[in-house]
């Protein structure tokens, strides 16, 4: 096993629920960036869609006084991930940059990690993914296309991170704040998703993660210690919709 080394990086994300409008731009960006298979009508019917980041929508209040509440959920990159110890072949493990990494080559498809994951953010390739001819050239060459029988999940756009890190190493410096954005945070029109290095105390994401509104999904119950920090809605106490997921 790779020994844990100190790394200057601890990649994390802040999700500001207050800013999320539920527009699904992040979902689309992620789908395109990471060669996520197409969610066809059949897949929906089979309850097998892929959505590395998803917007959960909850209704609050009774008609006609109804409000929609949105919460984007992606892999929480848990520091104490329930999915990691259960994998028999180390196909998922924790790297020294705070990320929960999936190795497609090593995966044998026991799907145990998906059961262990309390956030429902792991996806299994039940079928061999196919793209129509017109979309073949759209596939991202930096990202592996997964075959049938393996698990996949949000990678925090690891290919972007690696590219930036390589570049920084060449210039003998650390990756600067704002140099990398994940596809979802890049696409977010309201800036609800902020990506960055939590080890860098001056980075935007570290500052935001110390906001009074911050909370982590299911952390107090399961102790998963996620690297994704949520900021609660402003105008009222977090209850009902978001809190239902907050647990």
């Amino acid at each position: 096993m790779v020994t844990q080394q100190d790394s200057p990086y601890n990649w994390g994300m802040v999700v500001d629920i207050d800013r999320c409008t539920g527009c699904q731009a992040c979902v689309l960006a992620c789908q395109v960036e990471n060669n996520v298979p197409l969610n066809t009508e059949n897949l929906y019917k089979q309850q097998r869609i892929y959505s590395w980041i998803r917007i959960e929508r909850y209704w609050e209040g009774d008609f006609p006084d109804v409000k929609a509440r949105f919460i984007p959920i992606l892999c929480q990159q848990c520091g104490n991930a329930p999915c990691e110890p259960v994998c028999p072949v180390y196909a998922t493990y924790h790297n020294n940059e705070g990320m929960n990494v999936q190795i497609y080559n090593r995966c044998v498809g026991t799907r145990y990690c998906a059961n262990g994951c309390p956030y429902h953010v792991r996806f299994f390739n039940y079928w061999e993914p196919v793209w129509p001819e017109s979309l073949r050239n759209q596939l991202n060459p930096d990202v592996t296309v997964r075959s049938r029988g393996v698990m996949e999940k949000c990678s925090f756009c690891v290919h972007r991170i690696r590219r930036a890190e390589r570049k920084a190493r060449g210039e003998d410096r650390l990756v600067m704040d704002g140099e990398i954005q994940s596809a979802c945070s890049q696409a977010c029109p309201t800036d609800a998703l902020v990506f960055g290095n939590l080890n860098d105390l001056t980075s935007r994401v570290s500052k935001m993660s110390k906001d009074d509104r911050h909370y982590k999904l299911l952390d107090d119950k399961l102790g998963t210690d996620p690297n994704v920090v949520y900021l609660a809605r402003v105008e009222e106490k977090v209850e009902e919709g978001a809190a239902a997921a907050h647990g």
Partner: peptide, 9 residues
């Protein structure tokens, strides 16, 4: 021990 949740610890 395995589940490592705060209350179990």
């Amino acid at each position: 021990w395995y589940s490592r949740t705060p209350q179990n610890e």
